[in-house]
Nucleic acid binder design. Structure first.
Lengths: 132, 132
DNA sequence: GAAACTACTTTCCTTTGGGATACCACTTTC
DNA sequence: GAAAGTGGTATCCCAAAGGAAAGTAGTTTC
């Protein structure tokens, strides 16, 4: 055997893994995208509803990130011809394939919060308080 | 019924969901953390190994994000007293609880790449080419 | 005819994330 | 004693991400 089989295979697997992760991060990049999807997970939302739920987002950023999600076919935008115009956003079937990731993140966040709220020692407690 | 029961409950669930997501994003924020964890997922790595695998990261950013991961008890740093000093990084048991999320992201990235490589129409193709 | 409502866009400005480069401490090798 | 290798830190600098605030368009309400 002229090349080490184990090492080089392992490295290729790792590289492919990292590339796949990077592809996902490309689609989800931006400060608000994951939160927006997390909010739309519970059904259609109008622009103002989203802005109220995704705490801290401004209208500029909200519309920008919604547009990017739309371009990636993750979110569908529907305009209704009502008195003042109504716009509804919802996850496409493709967008719903992200729900697994988002839900896993929510689960992890929940148990992480519990862990931080029941610190093993006083140093952790200091840390927890400073973060809120 | 003085208040709409469905609406208010749904909203609280959504708010809690978004808070949990936000907690997770806090821990994982920074351009390289998820890739670093994705790399350590395949076992212990030395500083230079990580820098070679996480494509594009500089030593400043790598050491900064490793330090932050260490502070959150997701990564363990071990110094060996060898000729030139050797440092190994590895996921802690707690860090390994993130593997589920990371692996889901890798899975999604893989199928997303396939989808983009086999576009439904020519417009998608243009999009795919422009992104690479 | 002024105000209010929705769904944005535009402009301007600040922050900060992060890249490039150089440097440090320590030891072995030449 | 100079170079090379490891695992970083310090410094400077800049593009881009993002926030605040005001403006737009079309319609309805008062």
């Amino acid at each position: 055997m002229s090349k080490k089989p184990g090492t080089s295979e392992k490295s290729e697997v790792c590289t492919e893994h990292l590339r796949a992760i990077h592809d996902t991060l490309d689609v989800l990049n931006g400060k608000w995208k994951i939160s927006i999807i997390g909010s739309l997970r519970f059904g259609k939302k109008r622009f103002m509803e989203l802005q109220r739920e995704v705490e801290g987002v401004g209208s500029k950023m909200l519309s920008k990130e919604l547009r990017e999600l739309e371009m990636n076919e993750l979110v569908k935008r529907t305009v209704y011809d009502t008195k003042p115009v109504t716009v509804e956003y919802e996850l496409t079937p493709y967008g719903k394939t992200l729900e697994t990731i988002i839900d896993e993140m929510a689960n992890w966040g929940r148990s992480h919060r519990k862990r931080i709220m029941h610190p093993v020692n006083q140093l952790d407690l200091q840390d927890a308080i400073s973060h809120l």
